[in-house]
């Protein structure tokens, strides 16, 4: 597999604040690669360096074999960007937003018009072609931003929180489209706070915190390695139960009035606990990426 993005000891500082702290990663051609992490982890900053809109402080960053500092124009011509913040032009209609954007890529008018119509169709926005931006719903705006990012038929699509604030239907539409693009060979970079989304879409992902990469890998493998198969959640555990977990060497975590037990053998462990202790509430479930995320980044709020 060929790497289309390579970062080595990549660093970004804002005055004294270190936003991205010597990270290394590679994104392969045709995969969907995720950036997860709590607020302020440095995801958007990393994306913006890849998009050549934010200068690299230190380290090496290559996109499609070109250095972001030396060839920003060439790189930007080949990538599509859907930023975290909505920056559609409110004075223009939906269609005009796309065709205007195409002009910045020096695209012939007719091609731009055809592509814009095709993409509105693809993103289920055909009926809205002549509507002004302020009259769109949040989900429509997000879809339009993705459509706009696809105007130059990019080889790499960069999506910064594409589904934040959307209803389940809209999220599923966007997921379908991302899969469709991937099947056409587009490399997709995505940041998200939805763990199910990352689990569903990403072939590989990194979890970042305070500018550093904590882990990298395929989501299924990360869940398996870091958490195990399943989770047992027990309310109001007794001192004895906690001692028992420690003696048995079971991975567990205490959060307020709950204890979470991470194990590959949910059934056996649960049966043992049930027969030895009186439990008011317990639940068993499959381990998810959210468990991995919370375990690695902790449960405290970020400021």
């Amino acid at each position: 597999m060929r790497a289309v993005i390579r970062a080595e000891r990549l660093r970004k500082t804002f005055d004294s604040l270190v936003a991205v702290d010597n990270i290394d990663f590679e994104v392969n051609e045709g995969e969907c690669f995720g950036f997860l992490g709590p607020n302020g982890a440095g995801k958007t900053t990393t994306m913006r360096m890849i998009c050549c809109t934010s200068p690299v402080t230190k380290g090496m960053l290559e996109v499609l074999g070109m250095n972001v500092t030396e060839n920003p124009r060439e790189i930007k011509a080949l990538i599509g960007v859907a930023p975290q913040e909505n920056n559609l032009d409110p004075d223009f209609s939906v269609l005009k937003n796309l065709t205007t954007y195409a002009r910045y890529f020096d695209m012939p008018r007719q091609i731009a018009q055809d592509r814009a119509k095709g993409l509105l169709d693809f993103m289920h926005l055909k009926e809205k072609a002549d509507v002004l931006i302020p009259d769109l719903s949040g989900g429509m705006k997000r879809r339009l931003i993705i459509a706009r990012a696809l105007m130059n038929e990019p080889r790499i699509l960069i999506l910064d929180e594409p589904t934040t604030g959307l209803d389940p239907q809209a999220r599923h539409v966007i997921w379908d489209k991302i899969r469709e693009l991937k099947s056409k060979g587009v490399t997709v970079l995505i940041t998200t706070h939805y763990m199910d989304e990352a689990e569903q879409l990403c072939d590989r992902l990194v979890i970042m915190e305070r500018g550093k990469i904590l882990v990298e890998g395929d989501p299924k493998r990360l869940i398996d390695e870091i958490i195990g198969m399943g989770v047992i959640e027990i309310a109001n555990p007794s001192k004895e139960l906690e001692l028992y977990l420690e003696v048995r060497g079971l991975a567990s975590e205490r959060v307020n009035d709950r204890v979470y037990i991470y194990t590959h053998d949910v059934d056996t462990v649960n049966r043992d606990i049930m027969s030895n202790f009186s439990i008011t509430f317990s639940a068993m479930r499959k381990a998810t990426l959210e468990d991995v995320f919370l375990k690695l980044t902790g449960r405290g709020l970020r400021d």
Partner: peptide, 14 residues
């Protein structure tokens, strides 16, 4: 307010 410049510098324009 409209972040138009941000949108444009994501394209080949500087």
């Amino acid at each position: 307010y409209q972040k138009t410049f941000d949108a444009i510098i994501a394209t080949p324009l500087s």
